[in-house]
């Protein structure tokens, strides 16, 4: 049984169907990355899993138990097992609470009165390599990288089985980005955590994710092991995303595949393959609607895949 099993998840806000059927699974201890442009629905997926965004159809099973549409009361005990790391590191920390209160708040919310909060704060700060005296600081006294670590510490407080991380390295300098990724890799190995990471930074995905899914207009268009996707992207959209990555080498001449235009409006979804109008490899057959097909564990939604 998978730890997390998302099936045909659908979310609409009025006329706008943000998620048009998303399915994937995450095994215990596995890191799964969701990748795609702004507006592809990545954030909505993990917010829907955590019960923070509505999902009108489909199913989200955590350890085999259906949690889609669970009430806040039903969700609360589950939040011990599913922790969330939000995108804006400083904005997700209340400015009026000390770091000690912030990272021990989960114990209070879960009513774990027997815990020694000072000792827990010390233990958690140590876990994310921050000095113990940071417990008395306020969020404004932290750098972006330190605030991220506090976010990690808070997510770890209740020893979750699954962490949902929304752009965990956005806005970090490269020297600090490495530290955070090393920390997350290390914690994952030591604690056996599973993670769903959302990012549009493909350089990061390569180093943290076991498997990845590429989203376009609220659907997965390709899914596979990170290695396979980086080596042999089959969907033209994946290939475009990979080639759009600027290399830190002035002599690198990338075979860049230009992506035409911008994602279409969700109100006017294109007929046939939804990527067709922007696809540099589109063929006549693409006017038909491609189905999701899985071959050797590699999922693909494309009628004219790359060789």
């Amino acid at each position: 049984m998978s730890l997390l099993d998302v099936k045909d998840l659908r979310t609409s806000y009025g006329q706008v169907n943000v998620l048009a059927g998303v399915s994937f699974t995450v095994e215990p201890g596995e890191t799964y990355a969701l990748v795609g442009e702004s507006g592809s629905g990545k954030t909505t997926v993990i917010r829907a899993i955590a019960g923070l965004a509505p999902a009108q159809e489909g199913s989200v099973k955590f350890e085999g138990r259906e949690i889609r549409g669970a009430s806040e009361r039903e969700m609360r005990p589950l939040r011990k097992d599913i922790a969330m790391m939000f995108q804006d590191p400083v904005g997700s920390l209340s400015p009026r609470l000390t770091i000690r209160s912030l990272i021990t708040e989960p114990y209070r919310i879960q009513g774990m009165k027997d815990r020694d909060l000072d000792a827990e704060a010390k233990r958690l700060l140590e876990m994310v390599n921050l000095p113990a005296h940071f417990a008395d600081r306020y969020p404004y006294q932290l750098s972006g990288g330190q605030a991220r670590r506090v976010g990690v510490a808070r997510a770890l407080a209740l020893e979750p089985k699954l962490i949902l991380a929304d752009e965990p390295t956005a806005g970090l300098d490269v020297s600090v980005q490495g530290e955070l990724l090393n920390l997350m890799n290390d914690l994952r190995e030591r604690l056996g955590l599973a993670m769903v990471i959302i990012t549009h930074n493909l350089n990061v995905v390569r180093h943290v994710a076991d498997r990845m899914g590429i989203m376009y207009l609220g659907r997965l268009v390709e899914e596979g092991t990170t290695e396979a996707i980086f080596k042999h992207p089959r969907h033209p959209y994946t290939r475009c995303l990979l080639s759009a990555n600027p290399e830190p080498d002035p002599d690198a001449r990338l075979e860049r595949i230009a992506l035409k235009g911008e994602p279409p409006s969700l109100l006017r979804r294109p007929k046939g393959c939804e990527f067709r109008e922007r696809c540099p490899f589109a063929q006549e057959v693409c006017s038909q609607t491609p189905q999701w097909e899985i071959e050797n564990g590699h999922g693909l939604r494309c009628l004219a895949p790359l060789g």
């Binding site: 490269v174 020297s175 990724l181 990061v204 390569r206 180093h207 290695e227």
Partner: peptide
């Protein structure tokens, strides 16, 4: 430190402590 030129999955990424 830029992960863009590390082509294989790295266990530990370089940082500037």
């Amino acid at each position: 430190c830029d992960p863009g030129h590390i082509k294989e999955r790295a266990r530990v990424l370089p940082t500037i402590p």
